[in-house]
């Protein structure tokens, strides 16, 4: 279900917690599973739950509670733009509008070629860098002017 490499990475997470508390590693494990699979299908969540000896619904609770898990398929690249107030005051909304218009999609939509999904994000703890956006959950991009957005999209498109 998951690659040996992912399982090894999950084991590293498990080792951070006392042996009888494997469930603590579920956030890390779901993240690793998502990195491998692109999104979290039910079978993937089920697999992770069993791997950690927890009820599948308990793992689903976690996967559906935290925003960065995708329990629906997403495009190859997920772009999450912060539009919260501090960012909005420095162009967060304008940056999001620019991307929408560039990609021809709205929030929570994926481009027809399956390359990009756009999401509206909440505060990322980087308000001083507004406009900020997150690429594929793990790469934060700061001070995103239209030029930088163009460059980013071009790089991702390669």
């Amino acid at each position: 279900m998951l690659s040996q490499e992912s399982l090894a990475r999950i084991d590293v997470e498990v080792a951070k917690y006392p042996p009888e508390q494997k469930q603590s590693a579920v956030m890390g494990a779901l993240r690793i599973a998502q990195e491998e699979k692109g999104w979290l299908a039910n079978e993937t969540i089920d697999f992770v739950a069993r791997y950690l000896d927890m009820a599948p619904i308990a793992a689903f609770e976690v996967a559906s509670f935290y925003n960065m898990y995708d329990i629906e398929p997403v495009g190859k690249h997920k772009i999450t733009v912060c539009t919260n107030l501090p960012c909005a005051l420095s162009g967060g909304v304008h940056a999001a509008e620019y991307i929408k218009q560039k990609l021809g999609i709205d929030f929570n939509e994926t481009t027809a070629d399956g390359k990009f999904t756009l999401k509206e994000g909440e505060c990322m703890g980087a308000c001083g860098d507004a406009p900020v956006l997150l690429v594929n959950n793990h790469r934060m991009c700061s001070w995103m002017t239209p030029e930088k957005i163009d460059q980013m999209l071009a790089d991702l498109d390669k």
Binding site: Q21, K22, Q23, S24, A25, V26, M27, L30, R31, L52, M54, A58, E61, V62, F65, Y66, N67, M68, Y69, E122, C123
Partner: peptide
């Protein structure tokens, strides 16, 4: 964390460390 502001609340944070929502 993985995207939940509430986990900054200290007891939500504890739950999250325990692998719960």
């Amino acid at each position: 964390g993985y995207g939940a502001y509430i986990c900054g609340e200290e007891t939500a944070l504890l739950e999250s460390i325990e692998g719960k929502k």
